[in-house]
Design a protein around this nucleic acid. Sequence first.
DNA 1: CGAATTGTTGAATAGCGTCAATCAAGGTGG
DNA 2: CCACCTTGATTGACGCTATTCAACAATTCG
Lengths: 213, 213
Amino acid sequence: MLQNHAINYTTARGHRYGGAAATTKDQSIRLKADETIYSEGEHALTIYHVEAGAVRIYRLTAAGQRYILSFYGKGEWFGLETGDIRTDFAEAVCETCVTPFRANHDAVAPIDLLHIALTNLAKAQHKQLVITEQSALKRVAAFVCEMADRHPGDCEFDMMISRSDIADYLGLTVETVARCFTKLREKRILCLNGKLQRIVRLLDRDALISLTI
Amino acid sequence: MLQNHAINYTTARGHRYGGAAATTKDQSIRLKADETIYSEGEHALTIYHVEAGAVRIYRLTAAGQRYILSFYGKGEWFGLETGDIRTDFAEAVCETCVTPFRANHDAVAPIDLLHIALTNLAKAQHKQLVITEQSALKRVAAFVCEMADRHPGDCEFDMMISRSDIADYLGLTVETVARCFTKLREKRILCLNGKLQRIVRLLDRDALISLTI
DNA sequence: CGAATTGTTGAATAGCGTCAATCAAGGTGG
DNA sequence: CCACCTTGATTGACGCTATTCAACAATTCG
């Protein structure tokens, strides 16, 4: 059902993106932490592939509240919109490298847009469950699981995401997020290291998973 | 960006769906309230177009908790999955009529699957905002707005959805939903009629919208 | 009629948000 | 080098809000 829906996309050459650094010779863009990739209201001409680092996608509510829809890590695609105008913002979380692709008939490689859209849809639906299944601890546990899934095999990894980003992603406050992390430490489920306490060492993966259910 | 992604789908003929009534001569299926269209774990071979009535899509958590991902009304498409196995359940909310379509090379009409996927993605993202921007009253107000948008022009319409369904959709309890509806009545924003109090008469649409912001 | 379903309301509780203070790490300027 | 400020994370006290548990009304169905 998902085959044969690819259309031809090609890498964008020599094009500058939203104030980001110029493309390198392999057409990828290097970004420093918090650099903007695109903003709400811009024309949506390109989709992006994350080569390294991480990207956050967010919206601003009428009240000026930031809400992070999703994070994208290495190997994932983002930037596919319903219309041709951006409805959200994309920023690098940390040192990040992305490759832009845009519609072109002289395509280098076909990209399965439907597959990307459906993957994003599945992610969005999963997040709905996480958020609705309230209890701050469950949400934070689910978030740590999501981060851990990006590092299969490793029991220690760097989340690279601030408490504030986590809060805006999970619909909580920074204080609540911090309290949940202390609870997870008290339960001997994980350790936090690094000066910003963003390096997670999983002590009891099973207990973490059972928290999210 | 959304053009040229259609693939050929055709109406499914003479096929029975998950215990639902047999297809009529125009290939559409008539369902009574609460009838199942498909269930989790089944093969996902078809997508559906709602001709009349409404459909609810839900999942069951490990704890047996029901969570309604979305409602689909007349003219909308549902049933498109990431893989080829259903990850959720589809049921008729009330008397409903849907038309199944399945992949076929001898197609009757091309269907833009990417457009459907992106529409669903946009819906899911919007719902994330509604749920996260907590405050029970805001969520209920947003829900009523969503229902009202399906009846443009009308200031009175039948939601056809139980308090329990609304609760499972918004991540609240039935009691909280009921209390929010009383608040909306007290604020003279709407009236509720019908024996099950599901018929909404909008008194102050602007006030309702301003609540959701 | 009694039983079941759906919706509403009340009282008590638990949990998250708000406000505020504190700590650690790092930067800057004298 | 030290004093000062800033940033990000943590912790405590308090209030508000949604949940929980319970009772009750209205309607339908057997």
